[in-house]
Computed example of a mutant assay.
Amino acid sequence: MGVWATIRREWFIIGIVLVISAAKLQPAVGVRGGPLRPEITVAYVAVSLIFFNSGLSLKTEELTNALLHFRLHLFVQSFTLVFFPLAVWLLLKVLALSPIDQWLLRGLQTVSCMPPPVSSAVILTKAVGGNEAAAIFNSAFGSFLGIVVTPVLLLLFLGSSSSVPFTSIFSQLFVTVVVPLVLGQACRCFLKDFLERRKPPFGAISSAVLLVIIYTTFCDTFSHPDVELDPTSLLLVVLIIFSIQVSFMLLTFVVSTRSGSGFSPADTVAIMFCSTHKSLTLGIPMLKIVFLGYEQLSLISVPLLIYHPAQILLGSVLVPTIQSWMTAQQKTEVDVVPVYAEGGEEIDSSAHLMKRRMTQPTVPYHDQSSETSAGGRD
């Protein structure tokens, strides 16, 4: 019974291990042009399903509130499209003195210029119970913004004279992000009572779709054409990528939780994932467009191929820890709230709360966290 309970609780982590193992054994199944046709089933169907599911599960008032959270949007977009590229550029000035392959280092710069992904950041935010609406908005808005900003950053930092077909990229984003999200919200208007009564497992559905994306991502990674790579350089790049992700997640956490930041714990979760995740779906096609004709294109692409699965793995591993932190913060906010006297002076909230509990009748405690995990916020 204990083993089965553990499997049910940790099924997503177990699923990640299984799909990666399957990708390693048979990468040809999930590569572009393979039996699964990920260029259609993942790029369009899976991503569309994720955002339709989000539109169906997300309360309209929450999405509306997220649209007005300008400070959060400014923080995420500034971090991922301004601070991130500049910080990596400065880091590469130092790493240029190292024996690491220079084309791999240029690949690290291309990673820094990419917009947020349109799937993993949203699903991981949902899995933790963070501000899903803010994650959806910033993933979608960042992707649209990246259509223009990313090529400009690539040309600025690395140089290329190739033109970018903005129209085709914009069309794909509109079809896979905006349309499914709007359709999901429209369906929710008709099914609202049913959804609130039955509480479908929206989180589990999105997680299952993410497993498919992880599988095809690793199929591409394991079947990538062999390039002349120095094993030492490759290992160092992997370590640098994980170091960048951990450092930047910690940085966004510290900044967004400082006193007076104005961000809730749920906001912090969305900020951590959206600010540090980078899009492979947009990244690889954009690299092929901007660096068309480069013999070293495969080397430039390697860091992005590593970064994408690394961010999913790291994010998935950190989900329980971040979830525990957020739950603890929310309970603290519930237990201790600022209380003000008539003159506006703050008084001891904990003492006031204890006195109120002693003088008022007992009210049954309503566990909001269980409602959330059951689909209340999904």
Score class of each variant (00 low, 15 high):
residue 64 T to G: 15
residue 64 T to Y: 14
residue 64 T to E: 15
residue 64 T to C: 12
residue 65 N to C: 09
residue 65 N to K: 15
residue 65 N to L: 14
residue 66 A to W: 01
residue 66 A to N: 03
residue 66 A to D: 04
residue 66 A to T: 03
residue 67 L to Q: 04
residue 68 L to F: 12
residue 68 L to T: 15
residue 68 L to G: 12
residue 68 L to N: 14
residue 69 H to M: 07
residue 69 H to P: 06
residue 70 F to N: 11
residue 71 R to M: 06
residue 71 R to L: 08
residue 71 R to G: 11
residue 72 L to K: 11
residue 72 L to Q: 13
residue 72 L to S: 14
residue 73 H to W: 06
residue 73 H to F: 07
residue 74 L to T: 15
residue 74 L to F: 15
residue 75 F to R: 11
residue 75 F to L: 14
residue 76 V to M: 07
residue 76 V to Q: 05
residue 77 Q to M: 09
residue 77 Q to H: 14
residue 77 Q to F: 01
residue 78 S to E: 03
residue 78 S to Q: 07
residue 79 F to P: 11
residue 79 F to R: 06
residue 79 F to E: 12
residue 80 T to Y: 00
residue 82 V to P: 12
residue 83 F to P: 10
residue 83 F to M: 15
residue 84 F to R: 02
residue 84 F to V: 01
residue 86 L to E: 02
residue 86 L to M: 09
residue 86 L to D: 02
residue 86 L to R: 00
residue 86 L to F: 10
residue 87 A to I: 12
residue 88 V to H: 03
residue 88 V to D: 01
residue 88 V to R: 03
residue 89 W to F: 13
residue 89 W to R: 10
residue 90 L to H: 07
residue 90 L to W: 11
residue 90 L to R: 10
residue 91 L to Y: 02
residue 92 L to F: 07
residue 92 L to Y: 06
residue 93 K to H: 13
residue 93 K to N: 13
residue 95 L to N: 09
residue 97 L to A: 14
residue 97 L to R: 14
residue 98 S to H: 05
residue 99 P to Q: 07
residue 99 P to D: 06
residue 100 I to N: 07
residue 100 I to C: 04
residue 101 D to H: 08
residue 101 D to G: 09
residue 101 D to K: 06
residue 101 D to P: 09
residue 102 Q to N: 12
residue 102 Q to W: 02
residue 103 W to M: 14
residue 103 W to Y: 13
residue 104 L to P: 06
residue 104 L to Q: 05
residue 105 L to W: 03
residue 107 G to C: 02
residue 107 G to K: 02
residue 108 L to C: 08
residue 109 Q to P: 04
residue 110 T to L: 04
residue 111 V to R: 01
residue 112 S to I: 00
residue 112 S to T: 00
residue 112 S to R: 00
residue 112 S to K: 00
residue 112 S to M: 01
residue 114 M to C: 10
residue 114 M to K: 04
residue 114 M to W: 02
residue 116 P to F: 00
residue 117 P to R: 08
residue 117 P to I: 11
residue 119 S to R: 09
residue 119 S to Y: 13
residue 120 S to V: 00
residue 120 S to H: 00
residue 120 S to N: 07
residue 120 S to K: 00
residue 121 A to N: 13
residue 121 A to R: 09
residue 122 V to P: 04
residue 122 V to E: 03
residue 122 V to S: 04
residue 124 L to C: 03
residue 125 T to R: 01
residue 125 T to M: 03
residue 125 T to C: 06
residue 125 T to E: 02
residue 126 K to E: 13
residue 127 A to M: 11
residue 127 A to T: 10
residue 127 A to E: 06
residue 128 V to R: 09
residue 129 G to E: 11
residue 129 G to N: 09
residue 130 G to F: 12
residue 131 N to F: 03
residue 131 N to A: 13
residue 133 A to M: 11
residue 133 A to L: 12
residue 134 A to C: 12
residue 134 A to I: 03
residue 134 A to L: 06
residue 135 A to P: 07
residue 135 A to F: 05
residue 135 A to W: 05
residue 137 F to R: 07
residue 137 F to V: 15
residue 138 N to W: 06
residue 138 N to G: 05
residue 138 N to H: 07
residue 139 S to G: 12
residue 139 S to N: 05
